[in-house]
């Protein structure tokens, strides 16, 4: 069976800081960060025409949908949202047991000539994003690619940087950063570090 994705700890303690780690972003802070990212995407691209948001599963996908909803509120335009699975493009594919694939869903208009904003929860080594760039290569040729992440925790192993960052979070490599979203997780929404 595929290697399990790191499960959030069981047993939700009301004092989330003890069981899940220290809370770095709570619900309100996540919302504010996503609102700011939505505005920054609009500002950078002078509007939202030709913008396509592609979330990287699992948690990048709901984040992309939330950013799109905020863009719709501000500019009254519908931005296409999709999902891009990078499993088969990972550089460590051969080092672990075969993993289950996650959904890829390219919006009907495709990505050719569009500005693709990749959306992910945590930016760490940068290897997922490299895999995403390769995966995109097989889907089409965007005019430009930008990267939005909720948390940038540093420790890059590749020359990759994010264009839009919810929160820069200095971490040490043995710490664990966990993002929980109401769409996917039972625990209280937010970002914790442990």
């Amino acid at each position: 069976m595929p290697a399990p994705t790191p499960e959030p700890e069981q047993g939700t303690d009301p004092e989330a800081s003890s069981s899940l780690g220290r809370v770095v972003l709570d619900v309100a802070a996540v919302n504010r960060a996503l609102t700011r990212i939505a505005h920054e995407v609009l500002e950078r691209n002078r509007g939202a025409q030709d913008v396509v948001l592609l979330g990287i599963p699992t948690r990048g996908v709901p984040l992309a949908h939330r950013v799109a909803a905020r863009i719709a509120e501000v500019e009254d335009v519908v931005v296409p949202v999709g999902a891009l699975d990078v499993t088969m493009y990972r550089d460590d594919l051969r080092m672990r047991p075969a993993r289950a694939l996650l959904p890829t869903d390219i919006p009907p208009g495709g990505i050719d000539g569009r500005t693709v904003v990749l959306v992910d929860d945590v930016l760490y080594s940068g290897r997922t994003i490299r895999a995403a760039l390769d995966a995109m290569n097989d889907v089409g040729r965007p005019a430009a690619v930008q990267l939005a992440v909720l948390v940038d925790r540093g420790h890059r192993e590749l020359p990759i940087r994010a264009d839009f960052v919810g929160k820069n979070l200095p971490t040490s490599t043995h710490e664990k950063v966990a993002v929980r979203l109401s769409e996917l997780d039972d625990e209280a929404e937010g970002v914790t570090i442990r």
Partner: peptide, 8 residues
């Protein structure tokens, strides 16, 4: 069967 280090 072949994609990873061992079959799933």
């Amino acid at each position: 069967l072949l994609g990873g280090s061992e079959p799933a």
